[in-house]
């Protein structure tokens, strides 16, 4: 296996008094797509938010490219090369499409290559170029999701965190979006994907983690795990 880019080791996370993650460890290797599946409330988003710096682990270590990053602020993570497509897209409604993309490369290092990257993103999502001067709130759900992904790519991340990118979208649009995940991967960007749809997820990734009640229950390559094992880990029976 390739060298790990992201290493999460034994982290514990609390939401106020609620113990959300229990001794979670995970690795994302360079250039691979790794996915986390689990039911609602299993702690997938919490894990992603912790890696992105939105939440802080109370104990444990997070390493990115051999550098300890746990406890950093989200904006420091972006500069380091981790970028996130948050759940619910969270585009800036009162900014235009282009301005949203520009915010993606707010970090000085990314800003230098702004035009180059922008061109690539427009190739990936031609619709965004067409709508670049529209306020982003006027986009359809699928377009907004593309914008959110494009925006995250603008910072030229080495690792992209994708939180429920198919939520609330039509099947055809979802297919489209996952097509781009493949393209992102072919660019050499690692991806950590959170998804409720097991089949969709298994098809897209090289390695899968199954979470339940704030713990990792199962991990492995999609081909090597049986449906039965995954089902058991998913529902915690």
């Amino acid at each position: 296996m390739a060298k790990p880019l992201l290493r999460v080791q034994h982290i514990e996370v609390f939401y106020h008094d609620f113990h959300a993650l229990w001794d979670v460890s995970l690795e994302v290797e360079k250039g691979l797509v790794v996915s986390i599946i689990g039911a609602n409330g299993a702690g997938k988003s919490t894990l992603l938010n912790t890696i992105a710096g939105v939440l802080r682990p109370s104990s444990g270590i997070i390493e990115f490219d051999h550098k300890r990053i746990d406890g950093w602020m989200p904006y420091q993570m972006v500069a380091e090369g981790i970028s996130m497509v948050p759940e619910g897209r969270r585009i800036f409604p009162r900014l235009t499409v282009l301005e949203n993309l520009e915010m993606g490369c707010y970090v000085p290092k990314a800003r230098q290559k702004r035009d180059q990257v922008l061109k690539k993103i427009y190739e990936l999502f031609p619709i965004l170029e067409k709508r670049k001067n529209q306020f982003s709130i006027t986009l359809s759900g699928g377009e907004q999701q593309m914008l959110a992904i494009g925006r995250a790519l603008m910072s030229q991340p080495r690792l992209i965190l994708l939180d429920e990118i198919s939520l609330g979208l039509a099947p055809l649009v979802i297919k489209n979006i996952y097509q781009t995940v493949k393209q992102i991967h072919s660019e050499g960007i690692s991806a950590l994907l959170v998804e409720q749809d097991i089949q969709r997820s298994l098809k897209a990734c090289h390695k899968v983690y199954v979470m339940q009640s704030g713990k990792i229950r199962l991990e492995g390559r999609p081909g090597e795990l049986s449906q039965e094992d995954i089902r058991k880990a998913y529902f915690g029976v």
């Binding site: 992105a52 602020m73 989200p74 972006v78 585009i91 800036f92 900014l95 993606g104």
Partner: peptide, 17 residues
């Protein structure tokens, strides 16, 4: 633009760096 972005959604703005 960053000021406007932060006023739209502080959390998302942080995720943009």
């Amino acid at each position: 633009k960053a000021i406007r972005a932060a006023s739209d959604d502080e959390g998302a703005a942080q995720l943009m760096g």
